[in-house]
Design a protein around this nucleic acid. Structure first.
Lengths: 204, 204
DNA sequence: AGAGTAACCGAATGATCGGTCGGGGCAAGA
DNA sequence: TCTTGCCCCGACCGATCATTCGGTTACTCT
């Protein structure tokens, strides 16, 4: 069950041991299977192949693993807003770029984003994650509102409602999408389908 | 915090006490706020305004509350498939009726359906719920496949992918929809927006 | 008034929780 | 070969978990 792990990204072949990052990858998989609250440190130690106490040599505790995971997801999502295609051009085109980019980030960082989407606000870390997620949603809602003002989106459906349904559709990908070995084709197809379905219905 | 509760549905005004049903309503609200695994019997007792041990007078335990909740949700969803509009006519129209009906059930039984959508399979009850949910999805997928065979849906998007995105959009409503006092208008608007957005993009 | 009972409670159960502690093994540099 | 420091371990901690138990209250029925 325990897989081999490498220390760092650089070439230096060190010992075959855990780092916070490689341990995080294992932990997030377990979090997704059992839920964060349903996962004990005992579960994590078994999945990682080391003892419970050894985990504390690499990270401060269970909550730090959660914080690292959701931070990574949030960095990816906010990165989409900074891309050129999301910053220049008509609002409706920037919105489409954000929708496509969000879909791609969700698939590329699947476990981390999935975990972010499931936090409920029980701890301080979870509440912080939810707040940052609301910031992201607000940025997108502003973009969509701008597109409506340009007259590029249909007006017979409420703007807030459409935003929620659009990103609800995108976020729901996390519930079933599982990357395969040759994943480039899958990713493009899914992202394309999202944009096609959503914007064929949204555009005037 | 503890609200008043009535014993039964029939007219006889008995004592102001809990029944399994009224206790369930309280418990499900807490489950949604904190997550099932994140909710302790202590949390439930505080929310219900009775002691921890008193809960066991009404239900066998924590898991029975979960089972009652997801059963209610599943009954509602499968009920949609049995409605006349979902059983007669062209496949594409039945699919639209199922999409609209699912949306309405989701809003009418919001907390119960939301809970169903969040089970992860940690206990036997949760695995049973996931299995029945897969049955429902399979019924819908068959309907969508039939509609494609009729030539009523666009063929340039994969059928399975479209099914998942459509119901991902519908299920995501559980993440933000909160019923108001006069709810009839809200429900109709949301259900209408779902059908409009989805099928304007889906139809040939 | 007295009997019967549904609803409730405080206290305690063993199990499991996240986290701590002192020490052991092993590879690298001296 | 000896020291240093990283990685890991088993044993243990107080807290909290779901659940149980013996008993009390309060209402209904006769």
């Amino acid at each position: 069950m325990a897989e081999s792990r490498r220390t760092g990204a650089q070439g230096g072949a060190k010992r075959d041991t855990y780092t916070p990052e490689t341990l995080l990858a294992v932990a997030v998989e377990v979090f997704l299977e059992r839920g964060y609250d349903g996962t004990s440190m005992e579960h994590l130690s078994r999945a990682a192949g080391i003892s419970k106490s050894s985990i504390y040599h690499h990270v401060r505790g269970k909550e730090e693993l959660l914080r690292r995971a959701v931070s990574r997801a949030l960095d990816g999502l906010f990165g989409v807003l900074d891309e050129p295609a999301a910053r220049t051009g008509r609002a409706v085109d920037r919105l489409e770029a954000v929708a496509r980019g969000t879909t791609e980030v969700l698939m590329a960082e699947l476990p981390y984003v999935t975990l972010l989407l499931r936090v409920r606000g029980n701890t301080e870390t979870e509440r912080w994650a939810m707040e940052r997620r609301r910031d992201f949603d607000a940025r997108v809602a502003a973009l969509l509102k701008e597109a409506v003002a340009d007259g590029d989106l249909r007006a017979d459906v409420d703007v807030r409602l459409a935003t929620r349904l659009l990103f609800g559709m995108i976020n729901s990908i996390a519930e079933w999408y599982r990357p395969r070995a040759g994943n480039a084709h899958d990713d493009a197809e899914v992202a394309g389908a999202v944009v096609t379905l959503a914007f064929a219905g949204l555009r005037t």
